[in-house]
Amino acid sequence: MARNVRRGSGRLVRVIALALVCALAALPSFAGVAQVKLKLPLKPRLPLRGNERIALAPFVIATEAEKARDKRLQNVDLQAEFQRFLKKQIEKKTKLEIVSVPPELKLPTQNLSELGRSTEFWRALGAQTGAEILVSGSLEFRVEDRSGYKTEEYVSPIDSRTYYRQVYVEQTGFLFDIVFLVFDGRSGEKILQDEFKDFRQTGGRRADELQGLFENLFSLENQILNLFVARDRDAERYLFTD
């Protein structure tokens, strides 16, 4: 009996060894492709030295008129929240020096194209604050009720067949759209205009607006900072292994 067991285990070892030999022999013939991760640099969108003085002017709030109608927008001070977010990110992740703008500063127009052409206004603000770079633009934040009926697939436990049914799904969407206008503080000329958009959808009809806003902002963080400083971007590529 003991001899049989020993013979059996010996056979098992031989089988494993043979399998290993086969695997080793087969190694070079595996048509291989491996996925590798690269960190690619993203150059800053603005040609800066990196230590310029920057002033954050107010942004045009595109949804200001809707505030009176939409209660959920009333809970969010978009201007203050965004300025705070931008200031914090610039201070933390760049070497730019933030200079403050007069608290009573009013934009000459609420029209974005006109704002981009208000060279005199920006030159005067640059001279007043000593900022080499001036940032402004427009902000749009919308909370959308995306609840509604959606078609869902389900397999019946009775006859195991697939059926389609309409289900009511409660969802809230948060849309955030920023247009950045960057001006030269000395000449007042617009040096860059760029737009970033983000849309987030969460379950539930009564999702928190402020939380939604910051979800949008954090997802745009890399792109926003890339205006001023170099950032990394993860990328995947295929590499042939033989």
């Binding site: 070892v13 031989r14 060894a17 290993l20 030999v21 080793l24 022999a25 070079p28």
Partner: peptide, 19 residues
């Protein structure tokens, strides 16, 4: 067991030589 080790060793040497 010894046989298996020998076979495995030979396979490794062969693989090394081929590369």
């Amino acid at each position: 067991m010894k046989k298996a080790a020998l076979v495995l060793g030979a396979a490794l040497v062969a693989a090394g030589c081929s590369s």
